[in-house]
Amino acid sequence: MRRFAYVTRGVAWRSIHNTVVNPAIIVPSIIFPLFFLVAFAGGLSRISDIPRFDYKPGYTAFQFAFVFLQSAAFGGVFTGFAVARDFQSGFARRLLLSSPNRSGIIAGYVLGALMRWLIVGTIVTVAALLAGMNVEGDGIQLTGLLGLGLGMNFAAALWAIGVAMFLRTEQAGPLIQMPVFVALFLAPVYVPLSLLTGWVHAVSSVNPITAVIESGRGLLAGSPVKVLLAFLLLAGAGVVFAGFARRGLASAERAG
């Protein structure tokens, strides 16, 4: 256990250090969610005038919940890029050789993803508040929203680390990113689920991320919905992707 903690701490520290000191890594992580917040909450705010759009806190809060959870998912995705880069540069192989407990490598990267997202999530939240976002949820409900973000970040990081460890090349980038991007955008991003029509409504209705986003919006509005379902789905995804990441690590170990 001590060895696990030792490796986890070392990998997490390196991950955070690289993120903070390298603008090329941290800036896109911050710019992208801010940009989505500005583009969606600013450019599409007229959507709140659509008949039957009834989200009480307003369109900025409606979009903030999505962007907040999206930034959590992309915090995980960007960590996958870092893992792929570490394999491509040969650093990850040296890490595998020197680690007394290799599961700690995964845990370290996951912890690094979490810390990275806490920075980004804080900046996005401050930006939304400065933009006049209404928050109607109480402290406990907002803690629930933060918990959803942590769960999203955890699951996405494990997915991204798994893919990066299986492929061990920076060219894995689109494969890490695309499924997360598409899954997020196949949820009710711009309007509530009830206002979606056609194939997007059908897909959104069965997309697990829909429950997470609806739950996040409910918590922000002070009217919680599907909270238990959202946490169960994130926990399930975490378990599945943890197994996937562990198999990715085993694949990297076999490759030497």
């Binding site: 599409l44 007229r46 959507i47 005038d49 659509i50 008949p51 598409v182 955008f185 196949l186 009710p188 991003v189 711009y190 309007v191 206002l195 979606l196 029509t197 056609g198 194939w199 997007v200």
Partner: peptide
């Protein structure tokens, strides 16, 4: 094309503005 497919359907209610 992915964005066109998703947004074309997801934002279709915008035409009611």
């Amino acid at each position: 094309l992915i964005l066109f497919a998703i947004n074309g359907s997801a934002l279709s209610k915008v035409t009611e503005i």
